[in-house]
Design a protein around this nucleic acid. Structure first.
Length: 492
RNA sequence: GCCGCGUUCGUCUAGGGGUCUAGGACGCCGCCCUUUCACGGCGGUAACACGGGUUCAAAUCCCGUACGCGGUACCA
């Protein structure tokens, strides 16, 4: 089985966040590049944190981003089921196998007893004592209890967990595809709980078992898992399986370098859920492109990629190992870049829908023309509908700073004269509007800018927008003349 | 505290002993185009965390320190 098989394995404890999407993306890229398989596995072993619609959000978000899943709860596949809650029997079978072989043991300590142990052993040198080779001898488990006692406890249904037996004196090392060799002393690895007292496996057991049965070749996940990888390695060894290649991605940090927690991010105005980016009108291509470059680079100066382009050049070797700060401004730039590459029809349709929802009914062809003029001037598609009111109704006010800067003593008179020219009859083409304006300013022996700026202000109410003459041609001479006269009246 | 992983312009990064007076991108500033908006083009700003070592030569290798992040749960 040399086929690459990778998985994205989120737990449905909340909506998909950008870190998760990036992890999914890197997995996807490796799969597509190698002709391998991209698997989605739902790790829902924690019933206390389960969020009902999280799985739907994950599925929908992956689709939105264009990451097609080959095998998963929705896509199906030969290694299913793809929800861990539906695979309990498998985990339990291997848990007892581990106990039988001596690689794991039963522990009967109650949460209170655990707390008491930690409280008792706590010291400045060791603020958080672990359940490990140093402490297990004083606890209630199948290592310290007699076989008869253990059998009785088990038979009477006493709550218990299964723990991994970690022997001291060993060095556990593995080669990480992005960090090279990483080693841990087994003394600092605790006797990880494998099966909880509710009978559910923990992440560690379920993950290893599933990765094995799903023939996963590369585990690509966030760096937060690096420290638990020795436990996983131990499990693979105890189960007699070969561990897949590990690749731990650098974490995405907030713009100030701290962790990108939901709360911290909100304080800094950084959305962390992909859904929020969707709602804010980011292009999926832009988010994907930006996330791909966050911790990875192609090795040359190229930055703009679509999914297919990323698939071609991606490589695990070029993934960095230092945490990366999230930068909304650069994302915005990517958004503008991708926006410009979109077909006008696509944007026009979306803009028409957005306009309609605000009660502005307009001709599709007109919107298409407008979008054509605006497409390369905005960074977000939403601006096409929110900053273009003057295409649909006369401006109600005039930008204050613009007036201060551009509206001179002779502006009103010039603007009225221009209006008169338009009223005399003019072809609705940019060239005609431009010619008329230049002729007028030449006659008056003033610079064209003397009229261009006031005219823009009069026609749109703002100083920003498409080329003046293109805009006027689309608006039509009648509308323009009316607006010019009105501005002259209002601004004097 | 302990363990792990990191550390090149403000940010994302290239670079992996000499080609580094450290390259690209975002942002910012200026200029050009346009006597208009923007796109675009051009230019500028700005970095090898610190200290030791190895070497003829270190951003690059080694050690230490500092700092950051992660882990240290019957969460994932």
């Amino acid at each position: 089985m040399s086929q690459v098989r990778v998985r994205f394995a989120p737990s449905p404890t909340g909506y998909l966040h950008i870190g998760g999407l990036r992890t999914a993306l890197y997995n996807y890229l490796l799969a597509r590049q190698t002709g391998g398989t991209f698997i989605l596995r739902i790790e829902d072993t924690d019933r206390t944190r389960f969020v009902a619609d999280a799985e739907d959000d994950i599925l929908a978000t992956l689709k939105w981003a264009g990451l097609d899943v080959d095998e998963g709860p929705e896509a199906g596949g030969e290694c299913g089921p793809y929800r861990q809650s539906e695979r309990s029997a498998l985990y339990l079978r291997h848990a007892s196998e581990l106990v039988d072989s001596g690689a794991a043991y039963y522990a009967f300590d109650t949460p209170e007893e655990l707390d008491a142990m930690r409280e008792r052993l706590k010291s400045p040198q060791d603020p958080s004592p672990r359940y490990d080779c140093h402490t297990r001898g004083n606890m209630r488990n199948s290592l310290t209890l007699s076989p008869d006692d253990v059998a009785t406890l088990l038979a009477t249904g006493t709550p218990h967990v299964v723990r991994l037996l970690v022997e001291p004196g060993k060095t556990i090392s593995f080669v990480d595809a992005v960090r090279d060799q990483v080693s841990f002393a087994s003394e600092v690895v605790d006797d990880q709980i494998l099966v909880k007292s509710d009978g559910m496996p923990t992440y560690h057991l379920a993950n290893v078992v599933d990765d094995h049965y799903m023939s996963i070749t590369h585990v690509i996940r966030g760096e937060e898992w690096l420290s638990s990888t020795p436990k996983h390695i131990l499990l693979y060894e105890a189960l007699g399986w070969t561990a897949p290649t590990m690749a731990h991605l650098p974490l995405i940090l907030s713009p100030t370098g701290g962790k990108l927690s939901k709360r911290a991010a909100e304080r800094q105005g950084i959305p962390v859920l992909v859904k929020q980016y969707q709602d804010a009108g980011y292009e999926p291509e832009a988010l994907v492109n930006y996330l791909a470059l966050l911790g990875w680079n192609p090795g040359d100066d190229r930055e703009i990629f679509d999914l297919a382009g990323l698939v071609e050049v991606f490589s695990l070797e070029r993934v960095g190992s230092a945490g990366v700060q999230f930068d909304l401004e650069k994302l915005a730039w990517f958004n503008g870049q991708h926006l410009r590459r979109l077909p006008v029809a696509n944007l026009a349709e979306r803009t028409a829908t957005a306009l309609a929802s605000t009660g502005i009914e307009v001709d599709a062809a007109y919107v298409t023309e407008m979008v054509g003029l605006m497409q390369e001037r905005v960074a977000f598609a939403s601006e096409l509908a929110t900053t273009t009111g003057y295409f649909f109704s006369d401006p109600m006010s005039y930008d204050e700073n613009g007036v201060k800067k551009r509206w001179k003593d002779d502006s009103a008179e010039l603007v009225v004269a221009y209006a008169a020219t338009l009223e005399a009859g003019i072809e609705d083409t940019p060239e005609a509007f431009e010619q008329a304006l230049r002729q007028l300013t030449e006659t008056r022996e003033v610079g064209a800018g003397r009229l261009i700026h006031p005219a823009r202000l009069a026609v749109s109410g703002v100083t920003m927008g498409p080329g003046l003459f293109e805009m006027m041609a689309l608006l039509g001479s009648e509308t323009c003349a009316r607006r010019l006269r009105r501005a002259a009246q209002v601004l004097g």
